[in-house]
Design a binder for these strands. Sequence first.
DNA 1: CTAGTTGCAAAGAGTTTGCATGGCG
DNA 2: CGCCATGCAAACTCTTTGCAACTAG
Lengths: 129, 129
Amino acid sequence: MRSYNTRQRAAVVSFFLSHQERSCTPEDVAAALPDVPQSTVYRIISQLSCDGTIRRSGTDGRKNLYQYQGKECPGHMHIRCRNCGRIEHLDPQTTRSIESLVENASGFMALDTTVFEGLCSECRGQEKP
Amino acid sequence: MRSYNTRQRAAVVSFFLSHQERSCTPEDVAAALPDVPQSTVYRIISQLSCDGTIRRSGTDGRKNLYQYQGKECPGHMHIRCRNCGRIEHLDPQTTRSIESLVENASGFMALDTTVFEGLCSECRGQEKP
DNA sequence: CTAGTTGCAAAGAGTTTGCATGGCG
DNA sequence: CGCCATGCAAACTCTTTGCAACTAG
């Protein structure tokens, strides 16, 4: 089941390469590539995610997030503001500490695809439920 | 906008009361109450969630999770096995430690509705992607 | 050639909503 | 009685899938 180098696949990989610094949704990709239909974007993302080119980095609450998987890119968790939707990174060091805490307490191996729900400093006190 | 005591509402509250120890999905509720249509279950859950009777405790990956909100019930995070879907609690103490770590690192207030993605001890090494 | 890929449209899963009817207070 | 809640079906959002036509190697 080796994969072919199609125009569509190249475009999606190129998109993730030029957005290495942030997590993107399938919608982001489709919006940037109007000539690649959504279903194809979903299929290509699914493949790239399997072969390790990109990795799922959690969810924005609704949609899945994916990010280019650089060689020595240390995995990190994210936190999303429940009020404004903003997503930020937790540094790899904090991520490792949390993983240890969880593993010791539960026996589960915590994955860094975890996305915390939270409130950012600007939204604290002005939550709109 | 005070709420009326209807048979359906009472049934849903009663369900959550008798399942205080675990998080339930709208589907769980609807399945236990065959004479209350799904849309009504969703609407009642939405209300109860607003008025604080129950609280959203995260997601099972697809569906939302809700739990009865006892007065002195300390909030806790959950961890879900990505492989088998099993959900377990993290104890309140571990939850507090994680909240502190996150807050210090990011400035976000971490909410205990966070559900970790992980692998339970039984599924480690036998993940099926 | 021919297995893997695309494009389209339709199906799924979970959730929300519009609207006429019904019932609590 | 008036306002809120219910029931039904339809809409909505995100994602997956079936299938015939296409294309990279």
